[in-house]
């Protein structure tokens, strides 16, 4: 079937069709535009963590990230001074993470293999990577490690290793934040959650349009609604009647004003609450006679 002039008429009519836009929409949209990568690293870690969350490896993954991130520079410096005592220190550095060791044996194995390898980076770059506290000690490392200096390194290492745990905790908090962000996102995409929050009141399911003055019309009262529109359809989905707001009702007639037979019909309500959120529901309404 080729499009005829009938189709073309519609196509032409809507070619440049525009409509007024509720300014509220831009407010909503604007809030959800992804913040683009001004600082690429930050956004990478964010999306990284987010994907991990979705993958469901949340806690373990965050800890892994923290451990890898935190332990790498340390290992590098330690490997540089190849003296035997340092090897002991490596174990000490890893020690606080032992609880994780159970969870992540593979990761630790990887770290161990890294230990055996000679340090790839020159001393100067490693110094740059280190936090201020370790600067002194690693600079001293260049002068070849003597006993007292080693103890200094040891202390700084321990000092540093404690915060690792804190970092992990912080990451957990961060996760909570993230999940709450996700929750709000989910709310914004509407669906069932919102419907729970919205009080639909008691919508009747039968009425008797026989002009006896009792229950002759189908009315809807929505305590939470700022505005609503109700649509009545027959079971084939044909729209029979529509109204807006609490003053409207359905008298059991079709769009042409003719009485409809008894039986089941469908109502569909779209309501806006005082916060401007949209809620929808549907149900059945029977005409009894």
């Amino acid at each position: 079937m080729q499009p005829t002039s009938f189709e073309n008429m519609f196509k032409d009519a809507f070619e440049n069709f525009e409509a007024e836009v509720n300014p509220q929409i831009w407010v909503q949209v604007q809030q959800q535009i992804p913040t683009t990568a001004v600082t690429p690293q930050a956004s990478v870690t964010f999306s990284g963590v987010k994907t991990l969350l979705i993958a469901g490896v949340t806690a373990i993954a965050a800890i892994t990230a923290a451990v890898v991130y935190k332990s790498e520079p340390k290992l590098n410096t330690l490997v540089e001074s190849k003296d035997n005592p340092v090897d002991n220190k490596v174990e000490k550095t890893v020690a606080p993470v032992q609880s994780i060791e159970k969870v992540l044996p593979e990761l630790i194995k990887e770290n161990e293999t890294q230990k055996v390898q000679p340090a790839p980076a020159p001393a100067s770059t490693t110094v740059l990577k280190l936090p201020e506290t370790t600067n002194e000690s690693s600079a001293n490392n260049d002068n070849q490690a003597s006993e007292p200096l080693n103890t200094v390194t040891n202390q700084t290492k321990i000092k540093e290793s404690e915060p690792v745990v804190e970092v992990i905790n912080q990451d957990d908090k961060h996760e909570n934040n993230l999940s709450s962000i996700q929750n709000t996102e989910a709310e914004k995409t509407k669906e069932t959650e919102e419907i729970k929050d919205f009080n639909w009141g008691r919508i009747s399911n039968t009425f008797t349009p026989n002009a006896d003055g009792k229950n002759d019309v189908f009315k809807i009262h929505l305590p939470d609604a700022n505005y609503f529109k109700a649509t009545i359809l027959n079971i084939n989905g044909k729209i029979l009647h529509e109204w807006e707001g609490e003053n409207g009702f359905w008298d059991g007639k079709d769009a042409g004003g003719y009485d409809l037979p008894k039986g089941m019909y469908v109502y569909y309500i779209i309501a806006t609450d005082t916060n401007g959120n949209t809620h929808k529901t549907k149900g059945s309404i029977s005409i009894l006679k």
Partner: peptide, 18 residues
């Protein structure tokens, strides 16, 4: 109805920017 159309528009632009 208008409300549904507005929902569609909002969802659409969020997706467009995404």
């Amino acid at each position: 109805d208008l409300a549904t159309a507005e929902d569609y528009l909002q969802e659409s632009f969020i997706k467009v920017f995404g």
